[in-house]
Design a binder for these strands. Structure first.
Lengths: 215, 215
DNA sequence: AGAATAACTCGTCAAATGACAAGGTTTTGC
DNA sequence: GCAAAACCTTGTCATTTGACGAGTTATTCT
């Protein structure tokens, strides 16, 4: 029994079961939080039988770590797709591409920010893990781009923390709280026009004079 | 037995018990969410005996509603204190006062935004209640100030929804996710200088040319 | 003072949850 | 083919949770 083993499954069907569980786990954890998601719910949501989480992952905690690892292991790729190909060599344009890419990513995968927000609120082993494996690298990468743009005089001279949390909050909350936005403003946050406009407004605010598209 | 009655308690000690429970409930709900907070935890956190939530409020749901009502019933007052006295008659200055006031409020009461963010993620009876009683009025008020400033040409001409969620996210996330910020950037988000700088940066971004304090 | 009532204490229950284990089925290796 | 191992299924257990209710103490009212 390869229970909680660090190696992958051997047979084909096991891979399918694990993938379904990992996917369902991320969606449940993002939607209802760690405590709010029961292993039975996750198994039902994945369409598998009852004891398979215990068999494949051992404990709920192990499932969480593997699910987040697996899911965010693809997130940088998705984010990179949305970022790469734009920017060029101009620091301001590069930072702008990162910003609009982040907003589009937040709109495409609101579960990501929902999970991060939920876990960033209290300082436990999950935040520690996320800060080390997921957020840290992104924070460093964005910080480097910010520094270059700042040296070029393209952004305001403020500590990066402010810039980071202004961007993260402004760019993600509309989608993290999409149900509220729908109810409050009667719009669909995932509408393409809304997403594009949101990204451009934020980029224009943070990097004055870099965009200002005509319309 | 005045259980789940809409009228207040009769005796003095009951008022004390109810207040302790309401206060503990808001803090628990904001910290761990609705499902993540058990009635027994709340009672223990309030320092009262075990069956008193059932006695005074009947159900957990009734406790949540009364706790949020009670707590946010004071929030507008607290926000008003931080906003009033500034602004004057200039639309841009008034909006700026609302913005900086909101940021300071978010820093002073991070539980408020934590609770709003948690409940704004899924569309259930709690979001419905909050949108109607708490967020709606604030949304309308800020929207009116925004419209005046927009007519005066002080802010960009974008739909208010974008402005609202940019402000809400940018102004609150640093404090909602304070544990992450501490771990990520090694700062204390609640430090007075950090709060002030965060408020000014956001206000400067959203209302260009309204602040730009010397330093 | 003495009943009536509010306030509290505590035992208990049914459902849900995380974890484990025993037994069954399918696939792999030889 | 056939044993071994991987995979799956199901039963069960200890704990937690929301809720109820019977019994106890404190307060109020006359």
């Amino acid at each position: 029994m390869p229970n909680q083993s660090h190696r992958g499954p051997v047979q084909e069907r096991a891979q399918v079961t694990r993938d379904r569980l990992l996917d369902a786990a991320v969606r449940c954890f993002a939607a209802a939080g760690y405590e709010g998601s029961s292993t039975r719910q996750i198994e039902a949501s994945a369409g598998v039988k009852r004891g398979l989480i215990a068999y494949h992952f051992g404990t709920k905690e192990a499932l969480w770590k593997q699910a987040v690892t697996w899911w965010f292991g693809q997130a940088p790729h998705m984010l990179r797709v949305r970022v790469s190909g734009q920017g060029g060599s101009d620091p301001a344009a590069q930072l702008r591409a990162l910003i609009t890419g982040f907003v589009r990513f937040s709109a495409s995968f609101p579960e990501a920010n929902r999970l991060m927000i939920r876990e960033g609120m209290d300082d436990d082993w999950r935040l520690q893990w996320l800060a080390e494996h997921i957020v840290g690298p992104w924070y460093e990468r964005l910080g480097a781009a910010f520094e270059e743009a700042r040296s070029a005089g393209a952004v305001r001279n403020v500590p990066f923390v402010h810039f980071y949390y202004i961007l993260t909050g402004a760019g993600s909350l509309l989608f993290s709280m999409a149900p509220e936005a729908e109810r409050l403003a009667g719009i669909d946050p995932y509408d393409d026009d809304v997403v594009r406009r949101h990204a451009e407004v934020i980029a224009d605010l943070l990097i004055p004079g870099s965009g200002e598209h005509a319309h």
